[in-house]
Design a protein around this nucleic acid. Structure first.
Lengths: 233, 233
DNA sequence: AAGTGGTCTAGACCACTCC
DNA sequence: GAGTGGTCTAGACCACTTA
């Protein structure tokens, strides 16, 4: 590491961070310009810039040209969350990973899914339901729709050796997407699939993936009871 | 913006990103070194470095000294999630924000909370329960413990003009923390507070905050039914 | 109009890691 | 030992924003 080197951007950043967290600079306060700070720390302005830019990315500082740099009033507005790759998440805990194809059908999606796929309301698409298990115990239930306008080759795929997710990642480049975290009460169907009580509160991750012109797929992952998504800052 | 400038790191990054998403470079493939790419793009190595470093931060590339840079096998492993600042989240939707102090007591925490606070199992701490409302409707229920070893002045605070969270942010510098997202089934108590059915699945955010030496506070936010946390990539 | 952050460059040295 | 990314520097110009 370079933390000991007094002029590394990490060392500089750490000291600036300390000044912020220890209230040496109060929230909302204007701090010295890059150039002055660089001189004070005896480093190049680019080094100071990198340190400050990082803190701004983390939400600790707010920077504006001409206006200068201020300590953010409300720190820590964002965290990075690792999106689990199911297979790895299960195997990294030393558990056996399997998946079970519960359904693979072509039919017309309900209206909400049609809207998400940005598709003609009468056009059929591929509907796939999968259960992923850890040591034979239900881990997460996946309810996926694949847009056949965007991924026509999906209808010929058996998904017997590769899970839908792994197959899609290899098949189709994607560019953007959105994620939604929420909670639901287990329906009778989901309770059966995940071996829990009906009504049980379950953690849910909805993901919609797009390429340049199309929505590729939309998927809802419903996790087993007690599942947690952790992160640190 | 500088996106049009052909030598801006953004422009370079965008083109590299395109090569990755469009499979011009396959997942797992070794890509040219910084120096070569810089020459190809006609930019300085530092510019290329910044572009590639950003893509590595996003999880699209994996870089190792001497080994070189590879396209990540499984892209998009992490997303940035905005941690809601309750007051702002409510007011930004044009709703009236209020909070209601349901409880403020000093007593010995249950064992799991003691563990989180890293505290003596017999020592009392400050327990605060708050309900935040949007247009008088329950929005989120906050169940908080404050470590009195770390924040002794909390016991004198009435929390009548400032919510516990806003007060703490102003009082105490903190350095790190962890976040956990999960789901629960509403207990009778929570159902009453949040005006929902017992057993209803609810989205939960647990947060523990530390300064250098102490755990400052641990809090569980239980959101109203139907709450979603969204993010995009 | 002027101040401040944002970025680019060219060159240098260093640190890590693979062979 | 050697190759590759990581970083620092000094200087320059630019873009955005406020006054």
């Amino acid at each position: 590491m370079n933390d000991d080197k007094p002029n590394s951007w990490q060392a500089v950043q750490q000291d600036i961070r300390r000044r912020i967290t220890q209230r040496e600079w109060a929230p909302g306060e204007l701090i010295p310009h890059e150039a002055d700070l660089a001189q004070e720390f005896g480093c190049a302005r680019s080094t100071m810039n990198r340190a400050l830019r990082g803190l701004a990315d983390d939400g600790l500082l707010e920077r504006k040209r001409k206006a200068g740099t201020r300590v953010a009033l409300n720190p820590v507005r964002q965290v990075r969350v690792e999106i689990p790759v199911i297979r790895e998440e299960i195997e990294s805990k030393g558990n056996a990973f399997h998946y079970l194809l519960l359904r693979k059908e072509l039919h017309v999606p309900p209206p909400d899914i049609c809207a998400r796929l940005q598709s003609d309301p009468n056009q059929p698409h591929l509907h796939i339901e999968t259960l992923y298990t850890a040591n034979q115990r239900p881990y997460v239930y996946e309810d996926r729709w694949i847009n056949l306008n965007a991924v026509p080759q999906a209808s010929d795929e058996a998904f017997d050796t590769l899970s839908p997710n792994e197959w899609l990642v290899r098949q189709v480049p994607f560019e953007s997407g959105d994620f939604t975290f929420s909670a639901i009460s287990a329906t009778a169907r989901i309770a059966e699939v995940l071996s829990c009580e009906p009504g049980q509160g379950l953690f849910v991750l909805d993901r919609t993936t797009r390429s340049k012109d199309h929505v590729l797929t939309t998927v809802r992952l419903t996790f087993h009871a007690g599942y947690q998504l952790r992160t640190e800052i």
